[in-house]
Write a protein that binds this DNA or RNA. Structure first.
Lengths: 356, 356
DNA sequence: CTGAAAGCGCTTACAG
DNA sequence: CTGAAAGCGCTTACAG
């Protein structure tokens, strides 16, 4: 830490030969100051290498110029691996913030801790972006308190009717539908589902419902014996796949509720000597960076994280400025790769091709 | 934004029947306050749902309780993909900050922009953590200004003798050495190197030097015809591999200076119909999450991001508190996977096995 | 152990 | 267009 005294707007004022108020005005771009004066101030700023003290400025303006990104994870991961999908989101959120001139504070929250309102109240951030998988029903209570408290926030997750807060999410239902249709289109008849399918995990549940609807339309009704719970992790996917195999369930395809689950399932299948896609077709959801590189490359539903990040940031700023903002569902896009293409990879396509 | 008036320490004071100074003391954990008084304050805080205003507190204390993580990328990536290795670092840095009670501000800097000192001067952060690949020589100038300015910062990168700032980095030389030894141990004789190998990119250069030293010891001297520049990206790796192939260079192994480069090289090799590891053994560096999942799984050098994140944060805090801190080299660990194991994956091991 | 008061470095009515 | 002054919400000597 340097020992030299901190340079303040008074130092600039003195050097530029104006009052401190004028310095402040010039620096905040007030239209009131004379062009010549502004130049003098600017040059003093440069020679003294001055920067406005954010703490003082923010205190006075009752504003922080900062958004907080809160990840929550439940259960807390033991290692430092973060869900890669959220990591992709982080990239686009950071960029969207930068574009808007906001700083981004980032925090990983244990789901169990009582973080509500803390960030916004303490004026560390003007608003919150909430990201995370976890038990939605348990989570709702926190969201309600945040809202009651008047905190500005937006979240990524399932967009459900009647939700009293601004949410952006992928069209999970439609995505689940397209995956199931594609798998059925490949000739699969017994399509398993790996992932929690209850209102506690509404994103997965929507994917499940889309899948179930598509099957039903084709007279294939989803079989509860072909579903196994899993949170979004490679480990959970591996275990869910194993439990399905141990039950002796007969299936010719697996729809994993997330890519991480799919990657785990892939490992369990390989251990059993089952070949993907020849013995079992496989699809995931998210299109994490790894998805195109696993063996075989994974069919999945791509969520547009760039668009998502921008929607989150732009709408949070609206909220902060007291403007109305609306939840929206963002489209996903089925990305067909080898893991779901029945028949040898290089063989000519079968007659039942994928719909897109 | 809620319309209700902001609650301040004066409100707490009134409710608890003490002075505002006492509230502040109680909240900051001063040993001076009576236990009974502290309890009264605490309960007032809870009933009013009060949080200390960070801006005011920080202004007064000349402190921000925040660290800034600055990624810089050069050239700036067009999409929102961030180098996965840095993303892993981010996870561990965030956790390390949380453990120390600091907030983390994150920012992606265009390498071209003049960000030096901005964060620390404006009191947005007490110190900086610098992460990024880029031209080191161009970068040095900025670092020097940061240092001259008295800003507290630590960086991740190549640990070079005589560096006047605290740096943590992997033992790149030793890592490069182990990869080359391993590859040579697999019977490879013409081992190519993909990645910039100049003092502009000292991490890659150290890996190169380790590789060259190991080859030399075995009478295999590094052949300049077998080296191609690449920055750390899949695309650059793909292109570097192609250019090597187009030159008609003969090689039986490739050491890519990073996993991302290796993944790109893998694609270029596959396009040419070259099989890995049978025709060409391949190894990367970093052990990004994807490395174990590409086809075939990639041999690489794991950098311990957890330890790295902690070292970075802990030492930055030392610097901030005026304590001495020293640069250190963190060990890497060779992780041998299929991509470098000569012979058919399931065939019995050859006599020349990997060293570890 | 507690209170009254100064002051951190800004921004912004207010007066000219 | 500019300056003098109040005040944002805290923390911390200072006095008791």
């Amino acid at each position: 830490m340097s020992t030299k005294k901190k340079i303040t707007s008074f130092d600039i004022a003195e050097l530029a030969g104006v009052s401190q108020s004028t310095v402040s005005r010039a620096l905040r771009g007030s239209p009131l100051v004379n062009e010549e004066t502004r130049r003098r101030v600017q040059s003093a700023v440069e020679t003294l290498n001055y920067t406005v003290d954010k703490n003082a400025s923010n205190l006075r303006r009752k504003f922080s110029g900062t958004l907080a990104l809160l990840f929550f994870e439940d259960p807390a991961p033991d290692d430092s691996h973060i869900n890669p999908f959220f990591l992709s989101m982080l990239g686009s959120i950071t960029r969207a913030c930068a574009r808007q001139g906001y700083d981004l504070l980032i925090s990983f929250q244990q789901f169990s801790r009582d973080w509500h309102a803390d960030f916004a109240d303490s004026k560390k951030a003007d608003g919150l972006i909430l990201l995370g998988y976890g038990d939605y029903l348990a989570y709702c209570d926190r969201l309600e308190r945040l809202r009651a408290h008047g905190t500005s926030f937006v979240r990524w997750g399932a967009v459900l009717p009647g939700q009293p807060y601004v949410t952006f999410g992928c069209d999970n239902y439609q995505g689940g539908r397209e995956v199931a249709e594609h798998l059925a289109g490949q000739g699969c008849r017994r399509i398993a589902f790996l992932g929690d399918a209850s209102s506690h995990y509404p994103e997965f549940f929507e994917r499940y419902r889309g899948y179930a609807a598509a099957l039903e339309e084709r007279g294939l009704a989803a079989d509860p014996a072909l579903q196994a719970d899993a949170e979004s992790s490679e480990k959970a996917g591996y275990e869910a796949m194993r439990s399905l195999l141990e039950r002796g369930a007969a299936f010719d395809a697996v729809f994993a509720a997330s890519d991480l689950i799919a990657v785990g399932a892939l490992r369990a299948l390989a251990e059993r000597g089952l070949r993907v896609p020849r013995d079992v077709a496989l699809a995931g959801f998210d299109d994490i960076p790894m998805a195109g590189f696993v063996n075989p490359p994974l069919t999945t539903v791509r969520q547009d994280t760039k668009q998502a990040g921008e929607a989150l940031v732009d709408n949070l700023l609206k909220l902060i400025h007291g403007e109305p903002a609306e939840s929206a569902v963002l489209p996903g896009r089925l990305v067909v790769r080898q893991s779901s293409m029945r028949g040898a990879p290089r063989a000519p396509a079968r007659k039942r091709a994928a719909k897109r």
